[in-house]
Nucleic acid binder design. Structure first.
Lengths: 155, 155
DNA sequence: GTGTTAAAGTGAGGGCCCTCACTAATTCGT
DNA sequence: ACGAATTAGTGAGGGCCCTCACTTTAACAC
């Protein structure tokens, strides 16, 4: 309704807008997460990690790094913290003794469903102004960034 | 073509996708910026700050924080660094002796146009797979996040 | 078997961002 | 004139992410 002004939309503008929106969302996300009454106080980042491990049941460090889109160094850091907090466990991979498999602890597993529900609720409120059609469109457009980059978002 | 599976798209999925896309873009952005042959080696963040100051000619710290969408504390940090590097200058505000005005140095001003051009080039390559229509749509959709939040993206 | 490759981890250093708490100077309303 | 609000800054602490360099342990191919 107001975006058809010039012939070619400024690429820079769009990139900045995307970055800005992401920053905004991340902030809101953390605030809402912190306001929750979950037994665990998890950041968005740790929530994502935990849910990724959960959805894979068991997963390697390296694989996790790929799924999360971060460097292995970062995963080590995060896993250390979550292990300290008793939410994650490192177990030996029987098929490859170099590898480490990750698994949720009982404590974490028990809470998964409530974490997922709460996450969904937060995301819902973040997308409150979007119609179903707009959501579908946005999803479609954002996916373009990963065209041909073999990503899976099974989380 | 593959996004119309379920009735309501999962809000969580979209939020994660957006965050992931932003992270991806930020990484690529920094890589491309580092590969430039600009006289200054600027991060995306500092580039943004500099251009925001430039577009306002002169601006207050607090105002800058709002435009960048970050906390004042962060602006102080960034400005300190850019001032150290001789790209930014703090000057006194004649109208309000509490306030500080920011201004680009000559050195920075001279490079602004080339910085803008390079930024546009990077953004262009980041959006390489997007048609003009998709760009317009994406811009429109991302703007929804800021509905009723009085933002200006004059940068 | 020996050399290459892969998996995980470590330490150091840094960027960008946040919160909280507190100071100092100034402006402004009453 | 005085107290409240505003503007900027500081220090401490922390989260998440990155790079680079280097080690250890194992798998694998020849």
């Amino acid at each position: 309704m107001a975006g058809q002004d010039s012939s070619g939309p400024q690429a820079t503008e769009i990139v900045q807008l995307l970055l800005r929106a992401a920053h905004y969302i991340q902030q809101e996300y953390e605030v809402l997460l912190a306001a929750s009454e979950q037994p665990f106080q998890l950041s968005g980042s740790r929530t994502r990690l935990l849910l990724t491990v959960w959805s894979a049941d068991t997963i390697r460090m390296s694989e996790l790094a790929v799924k999360l889109g971060v460097r292995p160094r970062t995963v080590t850091e995060q896993v250390d913290a979550l292990e300290r907090d008793g939410l994650l466990r490192r177990i030996a991979d029987p098929n490859d003794r170099r590898a480490t498999l990750l698994q949720l602890t009982e404590e974490a597993s028990c809470q998964v469903h409530s974490i997922i529900a709460y996450q969904a609720q937060i995301s819902e409120s973040l997308l409150g102004d979007f119609t179903p059609q707009q959501r579908a469109d946005l999803k479609e457009l954002l996916s373009i960034f990963f065209n041909g980059k073999e990503m899976d978002f099974t989380c």
